[in-house]
C-alpha cells in the first residue's frame, strides 16, 4: 500500500487532519462507466460484483486506513454523469 504523503505528515505534525467523507450512492442510477473509480484521487472505489436493477455493476467502497480513505474532495460526485454518487463530510463523533 502507498505510504503516507508528505502533506499528511505535515498536517499531522501541525495537529490538523484531512477531512473525511462518507460516500453515498443511488444504486439504480449507476451505469457502471467507471469514471468515479478511475479518477478517485484516493482510490477508495472499486467495481463490485453485484448487479443493479439495469444490470450494471455499481462501485463499492474499499477504505484502507490510514491512506486510502475518502477525503470528501467531491470529485466522484462531479465526474459522475448519472447523478448517482455523492459525498458528505463525515462528522467526528
Amino acid at each position: 500500500m502507498a505510504t503516507e504523503s508528505n502533506t499528511e505528515k505535515l498536517l499531522e505534525r501541525s495537529g490538523l487532519s484531512l477531512p473525511r467523507g462518507e460516500v453515498y450512492l443511488i444504486e439504480d442510477r449507476c451505469k457502471g462507466c467507471g469514471l468515479c473509480i478511475a479518477f478517485c484521487p484516493k482510490h477508495v472505489l472499486v467495481v463490485s460484483d453485484k448487479f443493479n436493477k439495469k444490470g450494471y455493476h455499481p462501485p463499492e467502497l474499499v477504505e484502507e486506513e490510514p491512506v486510502n480513505v475518502c477525503i470528501n474532495c467531491g470529485f466522484c460526485e462531479r465526474i459522475c454523469p448519472e447523478f448517482a454518487i455523492f459525498v458528505k463530510e463525515k462528522k467526528e463523533e
Partner: peptide
C-alpha cells in the same frame, strides 16, 4: 432519470 446518454458519456457531467 436515468437519462438516455450512454454509460460514460460526458454530457451528464457537464449538466451537473
Amino acid at each position: 432519470l436515468p437519462h438516455v446518454w450512454c454509460p460514460g458519456c460526458g454530457i451528464g457531467t457537464v449538466l451537473g
